[in-house]
Simulated scan of single mutants.
Amino acid sequence: MRTSKWQLFRFAIVYFSSQTNIFLIPTIITSSSYQGWISLFVGCGLSLIVLWFTIHLGKIKQNQAWVNFGKDIVGKWVHKFMLILLLSWCVYYASFDIENFVLFFGSNYLRGTPPLFIQCVIGVVIMYTASLGFSTIVYMSDGIFLIFVVAITFTFYLFIPDADFNMLPAFLHYHDPGLAIKDSIMVMTWFAEWVVFLFVAPDLKIEIKMLKRLMLAGVCVFLTVLIGWMLTLLNFGPHLSKDLQYPFLEMIRSSSYDDLLGNSDPLLIGLWSSSMFIHSSFLIYVASRCASYLTKGRGKKYLVPGLTVISIAIAFYYSRNLAAYFKQYNSFAVVILWLIIECIPVYYTIIAFLRFRKKENKVTR
Rank of each mutant, 00 (worst) to 15 (best):
M167T: 06
F134H: 06
T136Q: 12
I55L: 10
G43K: 00
W229Y: 15
V78M: 13
G237E: 07
G43D: 04
P115E: 07
N21T: 15
S288F: 00
L244P: 01
S331F: 09
Y15C: 01
L146E: 01
L85T: 10
I227Q: 05
L223T: 13
A94N: 09
R357H: 14
V221A: 01
L46D: 02
E99K: 12
I73T: 00
Y246H: 10
H79K: 07
I28D: 05
A65Y: 02
I38E: 06
I278V: 15
S88G: 09
M210H: 11
K205V: 13
T155M: 06
F197Q: 05
M276Q: 10
M215G: 14
G43W: 00
L294C: 06
P238W: 06
L24W: 03
I126Y: 04
F326A: 07
Y93C: 03
N166S: 15
V74S: 08
R289E: 12
S107N: 12
L283N: 15
W77E: 10
R298K: 14
S254E: 07
L294M: 09
S131W: 09
I84N: 03
L223P: 08
T232C: 05
W229G: 00
V219W: 12
V304N: 01
V219S: 07
Y92S: 11
K359D: 11
A94P: 04
L322Q: 13
K182I: 07
W77Y: 15
S95R: 04
V121L: 14
F11Q: 04
Y302R: 12
G123Y: 02
V196S: 12
M186Q: 07
S331T: 08
I340N: 02
S18K: 03
L116S: 11
Y317V: 11
K71G: 12
D259F: 09
F248V: 04
I118W: 03
L8E: 10
I269V: 15
H173F: 12
V74A: 15
G297I: 06
V124G: 01
D97V: 08
L168G: 03
G58N: 05
T189Q: 00
V149W: 01
G178A: 11
S319M: 13
I22E: 01
S107P: 07
L168I: 15
I147Y: 05
F11D: 04
I208D: 15
T349G: 05
A65K: 03
K242H: 05
N63V: 08
F277G: 01
I284C: 02
R10M: 15
A192P: 09
